[in-house]
């Protein structure tokens, strides 16, 4: 089989200048530092993922181990190599487990972004790096949460943000490397207090509540999934340290 490797271009990724930010929701609200890094401009598509499974047969839907991907893995594909008829090649691939997403990024010589890296990029709107206090930014996210089947869109259909990254909101939820660093279920007193603060904070819902709510939904989602879950509106994109080159000779897995 002849597969074009070496197709990667640096322009597939956006350079992100690191900094500190205060996460919206977590175990503490101390500033977190994010180093410089690169992130894919778009979520990984069905088409790109197909290439991966062809070259790495153990990630085919017929061959993947249940430990790494549950029964809904690539559920929107007709078989190992074809999409169902109403699906879009250039829509983000979803129904992929964390293990699968991680293997894909590794194959590209990349890695999944950390939760903090992802959130850092995701707080930008078109003009500003941190748009979290803007009403428009929050309204966009919340209206997306209400919209069904937003995964059925080609990549790039939402907006290009401050960093030149597309589709962070408005399309699919995305895996992060340390999705399982979120602890929300009140396993410690500290967490419980956080939850209570969030839930009981105030009766009136102002823009900062909306902002917290939008982020809370993401964190709650992360805390409730397991590594082998394959979910219809959950996809991923890859990241890389700035000093690394994209891997043109794809690493075999």
């Amino acid at each position: 089989m002849i597969m074009a490797s070496g197709f990667s271009q640096a322009s597939e990724m956006a350079e992100i200048e690191g900094g500190t930010y205060i996460p919206l929701y977590g175990n503490d609200s101390l500033p977190v530092s994010v180093e410089n890094f690169k992130i894919d401009k778009y979520p990984v598509t069905n088409k790109e993922y197909l290439k991966f499974v062809v070259e790495n047969p153990k990630w085919k839907k017929s061959e993947v181990k249940a430990l790494f991907a549950d029964g809904r893995y690539l559920n929107h594909w007709k078989n190992d190599t074809e999409l169902k008829s109403d699906e879009l090649e250039n829509a983000p691939v979803t129904n992929v487990s964390w293990f699968a997403a991680r293997a894909y990024c590794k194959w590209k010589g990349k890695r999944l972004p950390t939760l903090d890296e992802w959130e850092y990029v995701a707080m930008a709107d078109k003009e500003t790096a941190d748009a979290r206090k803007k009403d428009g930014y929050n309204e966009f996210i919340l209206s997306w949460y209400e919209r069904p089947k937003s995964f059925h869109q080609e990549i790039g259909s939402t907006y290009e943000n401050y960093w030149g990254v597309y589709d962070m909101h408005g399309m699919v939820w995305e895996w992060t490397a340390d999705f399982n660093s979120v602890i929300i279920s009140g396993e410690t007193r500290r967490d419980e207090n956080q939850d209570n603060n969030l839930f009981c904070g105030s009766a009136a819902i102002g823009s900062s509540d909306l902002m917290n709510y939008a982020a809370f939904m993401r964190y709650a989602f992360r805390s409730s999934v397991k590594g082998n879950y394959s979910i219809r509106n959950l996809g991923f994109r890859c990241a890389q340290d700035t000093n690394e080159e994209e891997n043109s000779a794809n690493e075999a897995l």
């Binding site: 293990f99 399982n180 396993e187 397991k226």
Partner: peptide
């Protein structure tokens, strides 16, 4: 370690240089 935790559905996070918050 992160992967193993994912299999066990154990969540953890470093909350200070010395301490982690984690599922028991």
């Amino acid at each position: 370690t992160r992967e193993f935790a994912a299999v066990l559905a154990v969540n953890y996070k470093r909350i200070s240089p010395m301490d982690f918050s984690h599922s028991n």
